[in-house]
Amino acid sequence: QKNDRQQTLKLAHTLNIDHPVHKALIYMAERLKEKSYGAMAIDIYPSGQLGGERELIELLQIGSLAMTKVSSSPLEEFIDEMKVFSTPYLFEDNDHFWRTLNGDVGRHILLSGESVFLRGLGFYDAGSRSFYSVNKPIHTPDDLAGLKIRVQQSQSAIQMVNTLGGSATPIAWGELYTALQQGVVDGAENNPPSFWSSKHFEVAKYYTLDEHTMVPDIILISQYTWDHLNPQQQGWLQSAMDESVVYQRKLWAEATEEALEAVAAAGVEIIRPNKAPYQQKVQSAAASAAQNQPQINKDIINKIKLLRK
């Protein structure tokens, strides 16, 4: 079925094939094929077979890979603007979050990587990140004191957890399960579907839905590939992308629901705390965190705050 004129884009990501992101990407590939009458196709490489997220971004810059799905957090190393998302309690709620991403601010952030050959096509939902702990339930920020909380290797993640009162501990992701089990760390933080699929709920029996950050996933295309497409092809790709975003948000909501039910059924105590003390805790600290941000990000943060209701 592949003919010479067919434009095939290779897309790699690190999630497994049951993940909402993978299903949404397949949907995008189908929509693109239909819209372009078979002239364009996307080959998807799941499960990290072509590399980790940071490395996939580099492959886009090198030009040997066309597209990828990454979290905005490894993108911080490439694009300053992405650091905005690690500010705790920047968004009031889901609605505020999507109003921002679907508006001018979101568009600006997607295109902010153009100078480093990375063009954002759209945002996927990756929910809110919350704390989970092994021995001690976390009800208020005070309960975080002295707890070693695993974070990703990034300055902003470390700052975020320390701000909330925990003791940020970078641990390699592959070692986290045993680190939790054996008590090297007391807890970690992630969104419900990842808490479920990583099986960390088998060890960590308390999940506190404090929802401190909302860090979206981003679909990137290599600027080389994008420039190589004609305007019609760009249009097809963008509209297939936009349709898959809607579809993915629906899948994500379902996955979140299912994950929370499943971990609860597995004996995890789900704590829905009063978020006010957490927000107060970061109020002063968030301002100082914003001080460390580049000027351009302070402007973005201000614009995001203006979008609050």
Binding site: N16, I17, G174, Y177, S197, K199, E202
Partner: peptide, 14 residues
């Protein structure tokens, strides 16, 4: 075994 658990989409590591 942890890597297999991830690749298999959710076999319990324990």
């Amino acid at each position: 075994l942890i890597i297999y658990s991830l690749a298999s989409g959710g076999v319990s590591i324990a």
